[in-house]
Design a protein around this nucleic acid. Structure first.
Lengths: 233, 233
DNA sequence: GAGTACGAAATCGTATACGAAAACTATTGC
DNA sequence: GCAATAGTTTTCGTATACGATTTCGTACTC
């Protein structure tokens, strides 16, 4: 299924796979920003393959929500519609909550220690103001929590959400220091809950709130600065 | 996105779409049962199109989990691995729970009445022993609840889960009368909760348990008949 | 001068064709 | 009699080609 967020250019052999990884990487790193028109022939030429595998790759990305495809018109990188963002975050809140609750009983002290180390490094990043690394570490943190998640389907949904966010992040993500501090504290609190063997319900609730708080911060920031900027495309 | 479970043969025009709908329908109605080998050329001939759109359709079905695709080997209809069933049900429990909780505040008395009517008809089906119609009504019931779900992503996940189950059902689903009775009662209880405006938490919990109970019944039945298959959750 | 209609260019959708990989089968050697 | 191997067949993967559809620019009319 969908592997992780890391989509390297290294191919599994299949050109279709190659094209998929390449386009996905370009979307996530922002080379193809939201609204960008993905012309099959052009991409095919860039990658040195024919249009057939490229088309397949794009349809796959469409299924994941990273691109929007319109019949007889073409594909564009999915936009930053605030509504979509809200949907994605809400869904993530739910599946991450579930993933955390399911994983919690299986997380041993070693993993907790690792997660805590990552979280402390995140705190460092706040001092040096390194949003890029912070974001990466944030994913690492949750990856540690989820690495033993007993339900791969749920894990897959989490990864999809992350990918989706990643494609938006490059253009719209605003690093809110206040929220970031809070986030690190919430991570620590979550680890404590897991350590003391809190109920699945409590852990799920905490994990959900963690994601919801990020959404709220975004909404607040958006309202502060200006009109939410209905960037439909 | 993924529409509903109903995948008619009526095309949207695109042959790829046509092929997708046709194969999906055949999987769900059991014409292509789990394990069935989907040979591109053969399907293409059956549908009177070339292999390219068929391939696209199959890849799409793969993304939805209905078929399994192996490089340079081919596609087969996804199997009935009890583990997969467990994963799917667990995931459904979570997303249905969320969908119900999110929808609840938006369900008016008219919709409640409709849902209740459907549920009563389900009760009828138990007397006449009509499992097929029962299953259909069961989906109708939940569809009524979800029709105003404010988050389309979550709704999409619910539909995917249903499709997945539908593809398994044809071969493995065992209609357990005892469970069915209980299910109808749970529906009624759920409607009551919504009517009295219970908290989102309570509604979510009830909806989750509703799905989990079905899973448990399946596991119990499976254990009775033969070897179990661990179910952590 | 603005709006509409027509035509050209761009792009998609799908058919066909061929090379490559895997699966199957028959044959040979032990 | 069984196992390994070579050859054949099936099926996939992708390139190329062409028809269909949309879009954009231009000229024409009111």
């Amino acid at each position: 299924m969908t592997e992780t967020v890391t989509a390297a250019g290294t191919s599994t052999g299949s050109k279709s796979e190659q094209a998929y990884a390449a386009v996905k990487a370009r979307i996530i790193d922002g080379t193809y920003s939201p609204g960008y028109r993905l012309v099959l022939a052009k991409i095919a030429e860039d990658l040195g393959v024919s249009v057939v595998p490229v088309r397949e790759a794009i349809r796959r990305l469409e299924a994941e929500g990273l691109v929007k495809f319109e019949r007889n018109v073409g594909a564009t990188v999915s936009g930053i519609d605030p509504t979509e963002y809200l949907y994605t975050m809400q869904t993530l809140s739910i599946v991450e909550g579930a993933a955390t609750a399911l994983s919690a009983p299986l997380i041993d002290s070693v993993a907790i220690a690792r997660a805590r180390a990552v979280n402390e490094e995140m705190r460092e990043c706040l001092h040096h103001f390194d949003p890029v690394r912070f974001t990466q570490l944030n994913q690492d943190f949750h990856s540690v929590l989820f690495e033993h998640c007993p339900n791969p389907h749920i894990l897959d949904l989490v990864h999809r959400g992350w990918n989706r966010l990643a494609s938006l992040r490059s253009s719209t993500f605003r690093f809110v220091p206040g929220r970031a501090h809070q986030s690190v504290d919430e991570h620590e609190a979550l680890l404590r809950l897991i350590e003391i063997g809190a109920s699945a319900d409590d852990i799920e609730k905490a994990a959900r709130l963690h994601r919801s708080a990020t959404l709220d911060a975004y909404l607040a920031a958006a309202t502060d600065h200006q009109t939410p900027q209905t960037a439909q495309q």
